[in-house]
């Protein structure tokens, strides 16, 4: 219970936070950019973990396995997108349906086993809970995930800067306006969901390596953790960062903060039965921050007039 233990625990929390940060970036694309609450992630995270672990067990390289996780994850997003656009099912229900179906798919991917281990003693893992301290920096899980995150942010930044990327961003802002401009809104939504779930599944693959197993339940609560990261990132860095790439990095930082807080809570030795309640409280507090800021402080209203239309839309949306 001494402070050393907390400090020693921080690198592990940071690594875990960075991996979940990739999930948060995926969720940012759907929740913030497309304005869709996509619940597919609870399933696609597990899909990514399952695909990655099974590929590695079959002898494929780490890179191949993670790439496969990414591609299969994109397929899960595609399914949700098609359910939503082609079959006209509301987005939130479409996500729930895909997530439900993915449970069986994930079990089948792992050969009907609910839990598949990937033992760090026998496999050359990219990231592992073991490798957060006392290893050369290029093997350090924090360093590796940070680099991966930066690469992902760079690619997304370039992508969302293209003409198509801009219409994608505009889709969530005002669908009617976009349609009036001749943008194929349905197609954009499908693409957004596909990219988002690809990223989530990729993070699932990293997470499975980090924790040493893929489990059919590993995606349980992923949407809550991911949303928490998005909300925390927005609440703290939303006004400081205006650049799109920095906004994505804010998601990663939000996720790290979430895990640091959780680490403090566990380190503090709380009644362990309260863990989920406390997770919910952390999310609720950060969700409330933008609302309170809008309600009780004039500064925000001034900021709106000075051209921060994005924050305005968010406050209205929340």
């Amino acid at each position: 219970m001494n402070i050393d233990a907390l400090i020693n625990g921080l690198p592990g929390a940071a690594a875990q936070g960075l991996i979940w940060g990739i999930v948060a970036i995926g969720i940012y694309i759907t929740y913030k950019i497309l304005d869709i609450a996509d619940l597919t992630v609870d399933g696609s995270l597990g899909t990514g973990g399952a695909v990655c672990v099974m590929m590695m067990l079959a002898g494929y390289s780490n890179g191949m396995s993670l790439a496969a996780a990414f591609v299969i994850g994109m397929v899960t997003g595609l399914v949700t997108g098609l359910l939503n656009t082609v079959m006209g099912i509301p987005a939130i229900l479409a996500g729930i349906l895909t997530q439900l179906g993915l449970y069986s798919v994930n079990l089948k991917i792992m050969g009907s086993r609910a839990n598949t281990p990937i033992n760090p003693n026998n496999y050359d893992l990219l990231v592992s809970l073991r490798n957060v301290k006392n290893v050369p920096f290029y093997e350090n899980a924090i360093f590796i995930t940070a680099v991966i995150t930066l690469v992902i942010v760079a690619i997304l930044y370039l992508f969302f800067g293209t003409e198509f990327g801009c219409t994608l961003r505009a889709t969530g802002g005002s669908e009617a306006m976009c349609r009036a401009q001749g943008v194929n809104v349905e197609f954009n939504k499908v693409v957004g969901l596909t990219i988002s779930n690809g990223l989530v599944a990729f993070a699932g693959g990293l997470l499975a390596q980090y924790q040493g197993f893929a489990d059919v339940n590993m995606g349980r609560g992923a949407i809550v953790i991911g949303l928490a990261a998005v909300v925390i990132g927005e609440a703290i860095f939303g006004r400081i960062f205006s650049n799109f790439a920095l906004n994505l990095i804010a998601m990663s930082l939000g996720s790290i903060i979430y895990y640091l807080v959780l680490q403090v809570v566990i380190w503090r030795g709380l009644d362990p039965q309260l863990l989920k309640l406390l997770s919910a409280i952390i999310v609720a507090i950060f969700l409330a921050i933008p609302y309170f800021k809008g309600k009780y402080f004039n500064g925000v209203i001034l900021a709106r007039h000075s051209g921060s239309e994005k924050g305005d839309a968010e406050n209205a949306g929340n």
Partner: peptide, 21 residues
């Protein structure tokens, strides 16, 4: 420490134990 049914929480808890040596 209880992970409350989420395998992901096990990782956080174990990290805490390892850090506390």
């Amino acid at each position: 420490q209880l992970a409350q049914g989420e395998p992901n929480n096990c990782t956080t808890i174990i990290n805490n134990f390892v850090a506390g040596n």
